[in-house]
């Protein structure tokens, strides 16, 4: 059966992955600009901690937290994590990246420790924790497409505000811009995207889509909007091509996409180097 003939197998998964890739790359540019590239990785693991905590609490406290599904707790944990990590002021002793690193490793360890106490649910947890890009249910695909579209519209509307507070929050505050509110919206939207995306395609591709397309676009483009749009296009294109490659060569889907993003980043580095050399060698006008 050819790739196109088997579209009923992969269409939902590919659409969901493209949606996740596009929105992750867009919000990911802010993590590069604000120099907090490990934030998506930490949030993915905090999202996982939310899932495990829900199972742990449900199993040990019975029905007390029954209505709180693992998906809801994971979203709540990620949003809280995004706000805390986003707001944590850098100090002389710890850089912001240091704090994010600590959150990442603690969340990862807690997932393992709590997960060890609920072995009977382990495969169920694995499904939610590391949702995979191979099989995505129709309802999940629709949910992630709607979430991604909503976040992209929000980012489009607040584009200039997010940029101003990211570039020069002090002046923005001095000029009367509500920096705290704008930053909160930015971090909450990041948390929402990372949480939903992790549950759909897994932590590793989400981290890769949040960082690598943005880095490639920063090398290729000089204008702000071009960087954001370029990152999203690189990500969505890679999502499709990566899925195709994994299908025809029977490779792990998420990892194939990440490797492809890495190859593209390498190519962008080469192109950027060549462009600089050519500009230097060009005779003055």
């Amino acid at each position: 059966m050819s790739f196109l003939e088997s579209s009923f197998l992969w269409l939902d998964a590919v659409l969901a992955t493209i949606a996740v890739a596009t929105v992750c790359a867009w919000v990911g540019v802010y993590t590069i600009l604000r120099r907090v590239v490990f934030l998506p990785a930490a949030l993915s693991h905090i999202s996982g901690l939310g899932v495990v905590s829900a199972f742990f609490i449900y199993l040990h406290l019975g029905t007390v937290l029954g209505p709180l599904t693992p998906q809801l707790t994971s979203t709540f944990f990620t949003l809280a994590g995004a706000m805390l990590l986003g707001w944590f002021p850098p100090s002389k002793r710890f850089s912001k990246e240091g704090i994010i690193g600590i959150a990442y490793i603690l969340a990862s360890a807690l997932v393992i420790v709590l997960g060890d106490r609920i072995p009977e649910e382990s495969h169920h947890i694995q499904d939610i924790l590391f949702g995979n890009a191979v099989v995505v249910e129709r309802s999940q695909m629709i949910s992630i497409v709607i979430t991604s579209a909503a976040v992209l519209i929000l980012h489009f509307v607040m584009f200039r505000a997010f940029l101003f507070t990211s570039f020069d929050g002090t002046t923005a505050k001095a000029h009367g811009v509500p920096v705290r509110i704008i930053d909160s919206v930015l971090f909450l939207s990041m948390g929402l995207v990372i949480s939903e995306a992790t549950k759909t395609i897994g932590a590793m591709p989400v981290f890769a889509f949040a960082v690598l397309p943005g880095a490639s676009a920063m090398l290729l483009f000089r204008k702000t909007l071009h960087v954001f749009v370029g990152a999203s296009l690189i990500a969505s294109g890679t999502a499709f091509v990566g899925y195709y490659i994994s299908f025809i060569w029977s490779l792990p889907t998420g990892a194939s996409m990440v490797v492809l993003l890495g190859v593209l980043l390498g190519a962008c580095l080469g192109l950027s180097y060549l462009a600089k050399k050519l500009v230097k060698q060009a005779p003055p006008l």
Binding site: R35, F167, T170, K223
Partner: peptide, 10 residues
């Protein structure tokens, strides 16, 4: 010096 040159703003 407080402004990060990473931003591609015009």
């Amino acid at each position: 010096s407080e402004l990060d040159p990473i931003f591609p703003l015009s």
